[in-house]
Nucleic acid binder design. Structure first.
Lengths: 121, 121
DNA sequence: AGCTTATTCAACCAAACGGTTGACAGGCCG
DNA sequence: CGGCCTGTCAACCGTTTGGTTGAATAAGCT
């Protein structure tokens, strides 16, 4: 199996699974309740829930013969940490670039239009 | 093709691709430069970059015969928005649950130990 | 023009994915 | 006890994924 971060991202790459997570933010629910709105079989949803469970996004209880599914929101922090870390670095880099460009624009009088949006765009 | 959010999550579900993104927060780089540290073929990295590009995480320029790869950090906001939205909802729900539990504990004197951690755990 | 470098395209392969149907295990309830 | 839910396991199927090698395209360099 892959590392947890990979599993979390992979789990949320599927729209059905994202929808399941979204619905679980409202309330815990049993597998059948969760499966009801979709057109696929209960087994398919059971598999989706297993993926979410393996990623640590969800846990299952045991009430009578049902297994209420519960969202574990803490795992979101794992993603947020990764995303924020690199977003911050990327932004710092742009800030640095902006500074360099500003300096260049300062030293050299109106030469070329500032290539703030480079060859792409 | 799937929606962009799915493509972004799927793109970041691979450790090699996450590493590419991480390295691109430092500086733009050509395909060959990016491929150098890994043990796989350049073609494999080219494919990874295509996945990142299709997800909108990355764009390619054209300098001479090289195609410098550039990180598009804005797409991160798409994920952050999704994550924060549902994290917030989940947290609100816990707050509500806490309130309910507090009220119950208030009305009923020491009856059962508060089931703050339910059947799971 | 002709060679070289950088990158992608194409065909192929094994493994994983998302779905199906059918069988089976656990726990209620008449 | 016997049946009925609820949920999972197993086998199967078509598609996607991540990798390979080999050929093709594009833009310098001499």
């Amino acid at each position: 199996m892959a590392d947890q971060l990979s599993r979390v991202f992979a789990a949320l790459a599927d729209p059905t699974r994202r929808d399941l997570v979204a619905r679980l933010t409202v309330a815990d629910a049993t597998v059948n309740e969760l499966a009801e709105p979709y057109e696929v079989s209960v087994q398919a949803i059971s598999k989706h829930l297993k993926v979410l469970e393996d990623a640590g996004l969800v846990t299952k209880g045991r009430v009578a013969q049902t297994r209420p599914v519960h969202l574990e929101a803490e795992v979101f922090d794992l993603m947020t940490a990764w995303i924020e870390r690199y977003r911050r670095r990327a932004e710092q880099r742009y800030r640095r670039l902006d500074a360099v460009l500003a300096e260049i624009a300062d030293q050299t009088p109106p030469r070329t239009p500032p290539p703030t949006e480079g060859p792409r765009a």
